[in-house]
Write a protein that binds this DNA or RNA. Structure first.
Lengths: 229, 229
DNA sequence: TTGACTTCGTGTAATATCTACACAATACAA
DNA sequence: TTGTATTGTGTAGATATTACACGAAGTCAA
């Protein structure tokens, strides 16, 4: 079966930059390509958009198929369309970025024995296509956005100590933050709930666990609160 | 001549939301369609991406062809790809937004007698396709971005009085600003140059004219200045 | 030429926010 | 019981934000 048009059409793909946070590392999810072009290279998960499929749906489907991940924070990043970014044909890629709670998502390679793995941002293999560039744009977006919107919580488990939240911000923003000022600021915004629980199995004083309350955040937002770290 | 592929391909277009500022109105540039679908409706300027053409290049080319505008601030906005946004076939549109100095750009309709006109944002006709939605996203982006990056100057003539800059901000942000505080803040950032000229032909005390100095801004930025209104 | 009109340009005091900074309390492990 | 690691807390000084009013400059019309 073939498809014919009166003028040339590009192919359209979606690619996803999936971020995870672990201990004190930002990580990104990559798959190892099993086919040419760039066979055996690591690449961002993604694939062709089906002809009647919404773009975001396509991105979620590809993630599900290639890595087993579903139900995650996903937002459009940028569309990359240099004429020669794919050696096969003209391919325009609508890139998304995603944030996941690492412990909730056990990744699994797709059926065709493709490798899937998390890589720390500080230690990446060479990537296929223009994916290094895509990743760079995604990092910039994350760095910019995490300061003005409460998306950081998407990277943490549901209950977390403040020190972990601070470590996350320090990692993403690439700069140290003052503990007392950070706590004062984030708690004064009044959308973190003290769960009354504390850390288990730690070899030192256990920290209180907090939970982000999206409803409270929305209420405060409607009242004019401006989130900013 | 036809083009054949082993699986279906969407068409890809670019559309541009071009903003202009005039007296005290934000305006957007629209063209009146001369063909079906949506014949005679107003629409954002745009068109199909050529098969070997970069996306931004395509956006600039379409603007040039349809409105005569070239050399303007242009930035990618968002990619719209709902399966049924165009009745003809699956069309994915990479939208851009642009800012122009109204007085520098005399628009001209394209050769095929298509109408081109500026419309105030407060008084728009019904638009073709999902262009109302695209425009809404563009307005949000402009509103968000103008506070953190000095893009407002792209909408003003090279030399402008502070009151005009303030009016621009008040219009885009949809809220009044205090004159003394606004002046204090913007002048303290030290990238506006007093041109030593004053307004001509005004029926009241003439204001000093200022000029935005991009080099100075870049220098200050490198030194850690954070633009914010 | 005078007075009415319009817009320009300016300062301060009160309040809120930001920054820098150190140590005792807690919990486990040896 | 002692050592070790991490939590949780307050304040003072500096900086930034807000609210607010009036004389100066220039044009226009009577």
């Amino acid at each position: 079966m073939t498809f014919t048009y009166p003028y040339p059409h590009p192919a359209v793909t979606v690619d996803a930059v999936v971020f995870g946070f672990d201990e004190s590392d930002l990580k990104v999810l990559l798959i190892q390509r099993s086919q040419e072009p760039f066979k055996d290279r690591w690449a961002l998960p993604g694939g062709f958009v089906e002809i009647n499929e919404d773009l975001e749906t396509a991105a979620r489907r590809e993630l599900q198929e290639e890595t087993g991940i579903s139900r995650l924070f996903l937002e459009q990043l940028y569309t990359f369309g240099s004429p020669n970014r794919d050696p096969r044909e003209r391919v325009i890629s609508v890139a998304y970025y995603a944030l996941v709670k690492l412990i909730d998502h056990h990744i699994q390679a797709a059926s065709d024995a493709m490798n899937v793995a998390w890589f720390p941002l500080t230690d990446l293999p060479p990537l296929a296509f223009d994916h290094e560039h895509v990743l760079e744009v995604a990092c910039k977006r994350l760095k910019g956005k995490i300061r003005y919107e409460p998306i950081g919580f998407e990277l943490l488990p549901e209950k977390f100590p403040l020190s972990e939240l601070q470590r996350l911000y320090e990692t993403v923003l690439e700069k140290p933050l003052d503990k007392r000022n950070f706590r004062k600021k984030i708690l004064s915004m009044d959308f973190l709930i003290d769960t009354q629980e504390i850390q288990q199995d730690v070899a030192h004083r256990a920290a209180k666990l907090y939970r982000f309350d999206p409803q409270a955040y929305q209420r405060l937002r409607d009242q004019g609160l401006n989130f900013e770290i």
